[in-house]
Amino acid sequence: MQRFILLISLTLLLSACISEGTEVDNSPSPFFDLEGYIAAESARLSSLRPKVEKTITLNGETEAKEITDINFENDLRLFKEADINKPAWHDKYDTKEKTLSAGHVITSYLARDSSLTVRRLMVEQDQKATIKVEIERHTGSVLSDGHHLLTYEPARGYEVSTNQTNRFGEDVKARIVVRW
């Protein structure tokens, strides 16, 4: 009997802690769901297990490798982290759409605020299938200033180019190209 009373008391206590009137925002995001798209692409590529050629160029020195067991979730993390679908940013980007032909559209999201890391997100779609994503990022601090261009094409691979100017050290120019 004591267990029964204790169980009912706990149930009442826990139900009293749940706030009433909690609303869930089910409205669609105003921007392309980059995080979801990259997660789906990571899963797709992981299941396909394609052989990839990865070329890294760092300050003029180039190294290329053929890789058969790449961790796509980790490799595409930079793209996923560039998602702009955050409620606080819904008014921070302008959306521009350009129709190239029937069903072939380029949508660009341009930052209104220069303090945002993602300055431009471009999504090219043909018949609603994404064929290219391009991201311009800017990072910086008192010690460095970085410009990054990320390009993802599901049929070919991806590229990440970085030009970083360092105040007290050597500047960095890097390029990573992954092809499958």
Rank of each mutant, 00 (worst) to 15 (best):
W89A: 11
H148W: 09
L149W: 09
D145Y: 04
I84F: 13
R156Q: 11
L149H: 13
S29W: 09
L48D: 01
G36F: 05
V24I: 12
D69W: 00
D113V: 12
R120P: 00
D94P: 06
A39R: 13
T130E: 06
S27D: 08
G146D: 02
I84C: 15
V133Y: 05
I38L: 05
W89H: 12
L48W: 02
K132R: 10
Q127K: 15
T62P: 01
I106M: 07
L121M: 12
H138R: 15
H138N: 07
A88Y: 07
L78M: 14
A111Q: 07
E124D: 10
D69Q: 14
E73L: 04
A129L: 11
I67A: 01
G146N: 03
V123N: 08
L150E: 07
N71R: 09
T107Y: 11
G36L: 02
D145F: 02
D113S: 12
R137M: 10
A88F: 04
S27Q: 11
V123Y: 13
K54T: 04
K86A: 13
L116T: 04
I84V: 14
M122I: 13
A39P: 03
L121P: 04
Y37I: 08
I67T: 03
H138S: 12
A64K: 00
T68N: 13
S47Y: 04
F72G: 02
P50F: 01
F79Q: 12
R120C: 05
E153Q: 14
V24H: 05
F32P: 10
T68A: 11
V133Q: 08
V105F: 09
T139D: 15
